[in-house]
Each structure stands twice: as structure tokens, then as C-alpha cells.
């Protein structure tokens, strides 16, 4: 732990590792940066006085390299490509690499654009390394010593501020700042350093049957009654709340107070 603190806040700055995966365009399936991972790289690039390393564990190949070039084009000099078989469980390899490289902060997307995409990997790494885990990172506000103050994404565009002990692994939310444009020059010049590593086969993978996603329409109003007339009425009637409170012949002041109370109860007022 001690050593880590020195890594996290030493004079050489914070060491940030970004775990990147290969993305696929949602319409064409062409390889490229994975959107959330690219946002993670962007976040890392904006950490002041930091030292950034990018890791990818996977099957090396032309598509993989093409995708990784997308990250290099953001102005990254090199990416470490940890060679793994197509059916590998990459968590072991990544754990080992992280244990060795001892970053203060590990950033990665919330969910991969290929494969199972369970979003479990960062949790597994945090658990086995014993590091903090941050879910849904949107921005890093400050890093002081081995403490980072960050914003976490909540639904509906809301944010929560957290203070986290480093080292930490953070999953980056899709509402984090968008990644900078990937430029051709640095993408071509950047290095992809291949690191050979044993693969441990993900046995469970064989048990999954994976197909293209089906359309899943949102549920429409449920009218389950056995009575034909009830079903009929439920469909044909306009929506009415029914038992609402009606304040008539009250002063504007009283009305406002009633509304104010409701707003407070529902916790939508930020005061």
C-alpha cells in the first residue's frame, strides 16, 4: 500500500492506466475505438501531470490493430497489446499487468462493444487487486495525495460527487466528455507493443449463445382484466389520476406552500 501511495502522488505525477477494448460501429460493425474507452482515454489525458499507459488484452489481428490506432490517434505514443486467444478470460492477464505496473488510477469503459459485454471486468480486477472501484465516472475534479474527487453519473443527467482513495479502478460512463478526434498522423506513427501472455480460456463462454439483438419494444400499458368491459374501459379512457388533492379558494401563498412541500417530498428542489 505504501508503495502505491508513492506511485499515486509522487513527483513523477499520477500514473494512469487505461484499459481499452476494440469497438464496433453500431450500424456498420466496422472496427474502431470503443466509445466509452475512448472517453476514458480522454479523461486520462486531462489529468494534470499524469503518466498514461494504455493496455489492451485480446487477440491480435488486423481489425484489432485498426481499432487500437483509433486510440493512438488521440496523441498516445504507444499501446501495450497483451496477446490473448479469442476465447480467453483476459482478467488474469490484466490483473498481472496492473499488479506489475502499479498505476494510481485505472480507467476503462463501463461495457464492451463486443462479446459478452457484462461490464464485470473492472469489478473483478478491483476485487482481486483490492483496489477501490468507482462506477460511472464522468469527470475527475481533483487529485490530492492518494485521494481523488470525482463526479459519478446518475440517471437523467444527474451527478454525484465522491471522494475516493487511490489506487482505484473506475468505469467511465458514456456521459463523460466525448473523446477528442483521432488524428491520422499520430495514429500511423504510434506504436503497438505486443506483449506475449498466456491465455486462460473462458470456459463459460462456450455455454453462451450469442445472436444479434432483437427489437424489444417498451411495454405498453397493461390491461390484464378478465372483464372485457374493464379492458375496454382501460383502453378507451383518458388517463386520470383519480384521488388527487385539489386546493381551491386558497391564497396564492397557500397554494405555493402546498406545491413547495410536494417538491421537497419528491426531492426535486435543489436548495
Amino acid at each position: 500500500m505504501k508503495r502505491h501511495e508513492s506511485m499515486a502522488s509522487g513527483s513523477s505525477g499520477l500514473s494512469v492506466a487505461v484499459l481499452v477494448s476494440t469497438g464496433r460501429h453500431s450500424l456498420t460493425g466496422r472496427p474502431g475505438r470503443a466509445d466509452q474507452d475512448a472517453r476514458a482515454v480522454e479523461l486520462a489525458l486531462n489529468v494534470e501531470n499524469s503518466h498514461i499507459r494504455l493496455f489492451h488484452a485480446g487477440e491480435p489481428g488486423e481489425e484489432c490493430r485498426e481499432a487500437l490506432r483509433g486510440y493512438l490517434g488521440m496523441g498516445i505514443d504507444s499501446i501495450s497489446l497483451i496477446e490473448q486467444s479469442a476465447d480467453a478470460d483476459v482478467s488474469a492477464a490484466l490483473e498481472e499487468i496492473l499488479r506489475e505496473s502499479k498505476p494510481g488510477l485505472v480507467l476503462t469503459g463501463t461495457q464492451a462493444e463486443q462479446g459478452e459485454g457484462s461490464g464485470l471486468l473492472p469489478y473483478m480486477l478491483a476485487e482481486s487487486l483490492g483496489w477501490s472501484l468507482i462506477a460511472g465516472l464522468v469527470s475527475i475534479e481533483s487529485i490530492e495525495g492518494n485521494q481523488a474527487t470525482i463526479l459519478q453519473a446518475l440517471p437523467r443527467g444527474q451527478r454525484r460527487r465522491l471522494k475516493v482513495r487511490l489506487p482505484a479502478i473506475a468505469t467511465v460512463d458514456e456521459s463523460a466528455a466525448r473523446a477528442r478526434q483521432s488524428a491520422f498522423g499520430p495514429a500511423q506513427r504510434g506504436r503497438i507493443d505486443t506483449i506475449s501472455h498466456d491465455s486462460s480460456t473462458d470456459e463459460a463462454l462456450a455455454g453462451l449463445s450469442i445472436k444479434a439483438a432483437r427489437v424489444r419494444p417498451k411495454r405498453l400499458k397493461i390491461v390484464k382484466s378478465k372483464s372485457a368491459r374493464d379492458r375496454f374501459k382501460a383502453a378507451a379512457a383518458k388517463s386520470e389520476g383519480g384521488a388527487g388533492q385539489v386546493l381551491s379558494e386558497v391564497s396564492a401563498q397557500e397554494g405555493a406552500e402546498a406545491i413547495f412541500k410536494l417538491l421537497q417530498d419528491e426531492n426535486v428542489l435543489s436548495i
Binding site: T28, G32, G75, Q181, S182
Partner: peptide, 22 residues
Amino acid sequence: LTLEYGDTPGKGADVLDNLIAT
């Protein structure tokens, strides 16, 4: 600016990403 820095302003980055992907 574009090839070395990826500094295409405005919607430029989106447009170029789209051209590459679609």
C-alpha cells in the same frame, strides 16, 4: 490541423468519424 492534431472544429470531428464508419 486535422491529420496531425485532430483539430477539426465544430461538427467536423463527427462528420469525419461518420465518413470513416459509414
